[in-house]
Design a protein around this nucleic acid. Structure first.
Lengths: 181, 181
DNA sequence: AATTTAGGACAGCCATATTGACATATCTTT
DNA sequence: AAAGATATGTCAATATGGCTGTCCTAAATT
């Protein structure tokens, strides 16, 4: 090459909006990009494993929430994933056919198909969550208890709290209890 | 309905691996899910705006990094986005055709097509980054300086540091300087 | 009995990703 | 100068995971 790598050293644009006065807050390019890279690598680990199973990210999301919230119905799952019934249909059918998930008619409302992870499904979720937990634990290392609490508060603050779906509601409820505990 | 919402209150599986002994770390379901929801909403804001432009998330990612790292070449962009040349091709062509990005032959290596955002491109990136910054600032409110620093450290720790692409390298370099400053 | 709801299924479309092959211009190496 | 490697672009074919719209059944609500 003409140059080892050109541009040899990339430089980011400097932040123009910054100031200590009452102007609009400076763009947080740092956090925006850290979030991008963090999430990219966070979902990258599971992606590799899923490939071996012939599954994609969509299957992971479904398996995860079904395992975590046993008895979740289809409507609630759709709201969490923010996709349509038709999109979920294909993925869910695969997971049912291959024995990762089972359905059970609702007790109170027998139209509902409540979803449960099988042992096979649990094993897959555990494997993927293990990888992600490893990464999280690594990232939390070096932070004290108050630092870890700040991380939780930050992530919680990034989430829209108005009109939460059922799953998010459960999380927010649990989090409220945690703070008091 | 038989019941207002069934299950009326979802409950998450309780964490089985938890303990204070030297066992493998308990799965961090909390952080895993907070990250999912936080990222879902974080990219949700831009998505709505992009729709009006007839663009998708792919266009956002390209525009963002081209604006932020002016003179980025195609190869480096591919590494950041972790997609193939062919996938980038269509998106990039659209952005070029519609005047959001311009190309310039590299100075040292004239095979390279260095990418730059136009004023039109800058405006779009600024708009989207503004939305995301609002969310970030909101989430950081309530955290003190050490809390905000913990968040940065956590996100940084979530990222794979081995074999970084050019853009990530620039970020890591900048971050190192920040810590000293 | 009529209507609504939960869920499933079909058809077709679109965006974004993939691989593989190949072309061109330019840089590096011999 | 010739050969090889590299940066980028492009063509063709394919897969995944979204979408809309329509229609259907079973079971709930009114």
């Amino acid at each position: 090459m003409a140059v080892l790598n050109s541009p040899a050293q990339l430089a980011a644009k400097t932040n123009t909006g910054a100031s200590t006065t009452g102007e609009p807050a400076a763009t947080r390019w740092d956090i925006i990009e850290l979030l991008f890279f963090a999430y990219r690598d966070f979902v990258g680990d599971p992606d590799h494993v899923l490939e071996e199973f012939g599954f994609g990210r969509a299957h992971h999301r479904v398996m995860h929430f079904v395992y975590r919230y046993p008895g979740l119905n289809v409507a609630d799952l759709l709201e969490v994933l923010r996709i349509t019934k038709q999109s979920l249909g294909r993925v869910l059918k695969q997971l049912l056919d291959e024995g990762y998930i089972v359905q059970k008619a609702g007790d109170a409302d027998r139209r509902q198909r409540l979803l449960f992870a099988t042992a096979k499904g649990e094993a897959l979720v555990a494997k993927l969550a293990g990888l992600q937990t490893d990464r999280i634990v690594r990232a939390l290392r070096g932070l004290d208890a108050s630092g870890a609490e700040a991380v939780r508060k930050f992530l919680l603050g990034m989430i829209d709290h108005d009109d939460p779906d059922k799953v998010l509601e459960a999380i927010l409820r649990a989090d409220g209890k945690m703070v008091k505990a």
